[in-house]
Computed example of a mutant assay.
Amino acid sequence: MCIAETMAYCAVINRCGFNSEGIVVVAKRLGAQHGSGILGVNIGNNKTIEDAVSDYVKGVHTLSQFADYLVINISSLNTPGLCKLQGRKQLEELVKKDIAAVALALHLDGLIISNTTISRPDPVTSHPLAGESGGLSGKPLFDMSTSILKEMYILTQGKIPLIGCGGVSNGEDAYKKIRAGATLVQLYTAFAYDGPSLIPQIKAELAECLERDGFKSVQEAVGADCK
């Protein structure tokens, strides 16, 4: 599954450019895994490379054999120039190469919405560290990211699976992402703070939300606020 990531974070696996030990080390670690869960690999180009497309292709060839889905990360706020790949011309050049072939072979596609932000919305704007550079994640991002998710669902007419992320910390948050168009929900910051026990909690709360509003499944609720 090849997911063109528009303004997304919450990476599962990072390679060089995202401060990991590099693609060779990552490949060895993935090859040694024997888990039964879904594994996503987030691919971004190295900040020191000039030919970004060839760097992505190398990542796909090396890591796709281990992944249930691939994320083409075109929005890391910590990799200089990476966000330029969100332009239509640059993105078309990127995905028409071998990455597109991998996506077609796996018969899956989608978008992750959305990323950290360089803005500092309330109440963060008054924080002593608000002036630091880098992307902001977590709860302050929720409303902004959900709005973008809803807009993308409408623009794609619900034809492309969307993964909603940004500020999700409980079942109600996950439910709002689903109603805004997300088929899947992804979280990072809350998971880092609260740990694995947060997942069954979110699932239970999500089930309550669905039952409360008369939905028999998550799929029935996808895009409910966009109709």
Rank of each mutant, 00 (worst) to 15 (best):
E151G: 01
C209Y: 06
A204C: 04
T79E: 09
Y188E: 01
K150W: 01
A180H: 00
C209S: 11
T183I: 00
A101F: 08
D213C: 05
L91I: 08
A190K: 05
D51M: 07
I74E: 04
Y9I: 07
M152H: 05
A224L: 02
V25R: 13
I74Y: 02
E92M: 12
Y69L: 12
F215L: 08
E132R: 13
A224Q: 01
G167Y: 02
E21Y: 11
K203M: 10
T116R: 03
A204I: 03
G135A: 12
C83N: 14
G110A: 06
K89V: 14
K96I: 12
N42E: 04
S36L: 12
I113D: 00
A221F: 05
T48H: 11
K84E: 15
L111C: 09
Y188P: 00
K139G: 01
S147Q: 13
P80W: 12
N170L: 01
C10H: 11
S114W: 03
Y56I: 13
S64E: 13
A224R: 04
G166M: 07
C16H: 11
V26N: 10
L106Y: 10
Y69I: 08
H34K: 15
R88G: 02
Q157N: 15
V102Y: 11
Y153A: 00
S145M: 01
A221P: 02
E205G: 03
R179I: 00
Q219F: 04
P196A: 08
G44K: 05
I38R: 12
K216F: 01
S20E: 05
D68S: 08
V168I: 15
A101S: 14
K47G: 15
I38Q: 09
G223W: 02
I148L: 11
S126M: 08
S197N: 11
S145F: 02
L129D: 11
L108A: 14
L111A: 10
